[in-house]
């Protein structure tokens, strides 16, 4: 009875295939293998760097990552000088200065990424009334996580004949309602990778999805490496406690 119970709980836990309870039933997502999956999965730094390049060259025109600081890029393998020079490509408003005036200055590593629009209204006005969401948490904020984003970006297909597409919308098999306001953003060879990786559409999508998985869960590497050690310790401790329990209870009838 007891062993049976524990077995069922184990099966219950091991059968967690998807990342989320509420993503069950999203069968139309083609599951992908990610380097950051599983107990020992970690982010692939070179993929994150490529994904960051894609973000800057493709996504950043419409989408911000407002929760990410420039200094966080150290996790991607950039040096302090790299980060300083990346930050200095952005301008932010600061102030007031001693004269009481607001002024613009180049961003510093401690600043957060500056989005493309000043506010939601400007974002909507520039995008046909649609609001391009901030991408900092997008992977955690969608059922299916990284798989959802990967499938979405690959989900642009020919419009079926009897499908009524609204003005300014694009056909996407993954997006709820199958119409999305974002035109297909990613094609083969639309970026030239600094590390000369062949930039196929699939590769670009994979890299930018990895990058956005990182912006959503920057703590993942640290979390999993602590986690493995914690669980190992707990397994040993629990085994020992079990042995002690058996020993103490030996004389009870």
């Amino acid at each position: 009875m007891k062993i049976g119970f524990i077995k069922y709980i184990l099966i219950f836990f091991l059968s967690f295939h998807s990342i989320n309870l509420y993503s069950a039933g999203k069968a139309d997502l083609v599951e992908q293998k990610w380097p950051f999956d599983g107990f020992f999965g970690r982010f692939d730094q070179s993929s994150l760097q490529r994904g960051f390049q894609v973000y800057r060259e493709v996504c950043a025109g419409c989408h911000g990552i407002r929760l990410v600081s420039f200094r966080d890029l150290a996790a991607l393998g950039y040096t302090n000088d790299d980060i300083k020079s990346i930050a200095s490509e952005y301008e932010i408003e600061d102030g007031p200065n001693d004269e009481g005036e607001m002024f613009t200055r180049f961003a510093k590593p401690s600043d957060k990424f500056v989005g493309p629009y000043r506010n939601k209204n400007e974002a909507r006005a520039s995008n046909n009334g649609s609001y391009p969401p901030d991408l900092s948490l997008i992977v955690k904020a969608r059922a299916g996580g990284a798989d959802y984003l990967y499938n979405l970006l690959n989900g642009y297909k020919e419009v079926p004949e009897n499908f009524r597409l609204n003005d300014g919308m694009y056909y996407n098999t993954i997006y709820p309602g199958k119409q999305i306001a974002m035109p297909q953003p990613i094609y083969d060879d639309m970026v030239e990778y600094e590390d000369n990786t062949p930039a196929s559409q699939d590769q670009i999508i994979r890299d930018v999805t990895s990058f956005l998985a990182w912006t959503a869960e920057p703590e993942l590497d640290e979390r999993k490496s602590i986690g493995v050690r914690v669980l190992l310790f707990l397994f040993l401790l629990t085994l020992m406690l079990y042995a002690v329990k058996r020993k103490i209870w030996r004389d009870v009838e």
Partner: peptide, 28 residues
């Protein structure tokens, strides 16, 4: 000692969730 042992098993489940599937039970 029996409670300690139970606590060990409990922590394996609990911290397993915390470190490896922290958002599993939450809504995206």
């Amino acid at each position: 000692v029996k409670d300690y042992y139970g606590l060990g098993v409990f922590l394996i489940f609990y911290l397993g969730l915390v470190f490896f599937a922290p958002n599993f039970l939450g809504h995206p």
